[in-house]
């Protein structure tokens, strides 16, 4: 594409700017609220600047969220589940694509059908089963369930990518006497990095922001996740939007910073991972 800055480019720049203002509006409000006292919220226009920065909102939100703990939990659950998901979906996609007979095709359809099952509709039995397996109040139990329920989508994406990898390299490895598992581990897995990066974004956002599963499975305060703790800031009987919105900022800022740092890799990852 040309690097020239033409009239057309200016037009596009203007359109995008307007869109971005619309996007920023809710964030602006969140920020302004988070720095105001309850009285000021009532008394002033939502767009007015805070008279003085009410930092107490942040300390309150920090405490109410039990921030370090819940952030650590969320991070641990998300990171472990995503790592496992990438490994397992790679294994499944590899055997499905290379196995290529009726059985493997059938299994593929079996997995794909799972994309359509919203886990909310199988919640009660999932919980009964989970409690028998000791998944309650168990971070690993929750990780297990995330892996199980997100696998279909991950396999769907992985398999799409796997089909584009040429067989030749693997065949050479077989001839050298490598077993399939060894081939997968040494040759195929490293080739999956681009699609793994793309999947990492998609899956980690889903798991990071999930609410129902940790809400129902993790009752121990030391195991609660950020989303669950956030919900207690918005109760039907008492909501302090200033503290609530300060909580939103606190819990979103780290992941936003992470995104800013990782942006290049994210985009690169998707570029290579989107089935090209």
């Amino acid at each position: 594409m040309s690097k020239k800055y033409t009239k057309g480019t200016f037009l596009i720049q203007s359109i995008v700017s307007v869109i971005v203002i619309f996007y920023l509006l809710p964030f602006l409000v969140v920020f302004l609220y988070a720095f105001k006292s309850p009285q000021e919220i009532i008394g002033s226009s939502p767009f007015s600047l805070p008279e003085k920065l009410e930092l107490v909102n942040f300390t309150q939100a920090f405490e109410a969220l039990n921030f370090f703990q819940s952030f650590g939990n969320t991070f641990f659950i998300t990171a472990s589940a995503v790592l496992l998901l990438i490994l397992l979906s790679g294994m499944a996609a590899y055997s499905i694509v290379r196995g290529g007979n009726k059985f493997f095709n059938g299994t593929y359809m079996f997995f794909i059908a799972g994309i359509m099952i919203p886990y909310q509709v199988i919640f009660v039995p999932m919980f009964v089963l989970g409690s028998n397996l000791g998944f309650i109040n168990n971070l690993f139990g929750v990780i297990f369930l995330y892996v199980g329920t997100s696998l279909p989508f991950a396999i769907f994406v992985m398999a799409g990518f796997m089909k584009t990898i040429p067989k030749e390299i693997e065949e050479a490895a077989f001839i050298d006497g490598c077993s399939i598992m060894r081939t997968f581990w040494i040759i195929v897995l490293p080739m999956l990095k681009p699609v793994a990066a793309a999947l990492t974004i998609i899956l980690s956002l889903q798991i990071w922001n999930d609410y129902l599963l940790p809400q129902l499975f993790l009752s121990d305060n030391s195991m609660k996740t950020l989303t669950v703790m956030q919900s207690t800031l918005f109760s039907a009987f008492e909501t302090n939007f200033n503290v609530g919105f300060a909580g939103i900022i606190l819990s979103s800022l780290p992941i936003l910073i992470l995104f800013l740092f990782m942006q290049k890799h994210f985009v690169k990852g998707i570029t290579m991972g989107s089935g090209k």
Binding site: G99, L145, G148, L151
Partner: peptide, 18 residues
């Protein structure tokens, strides 16, 4: 061997959803 690779993901999926 392919099946062995497929087994662990299958277990996760079956226990969590099926």
């Amino acid at each position: 061997q392919y099946f062995l690779l497929l087994l662990p993901p299958l277990v996760f999926f079956i226990v969590a959803m099926i």
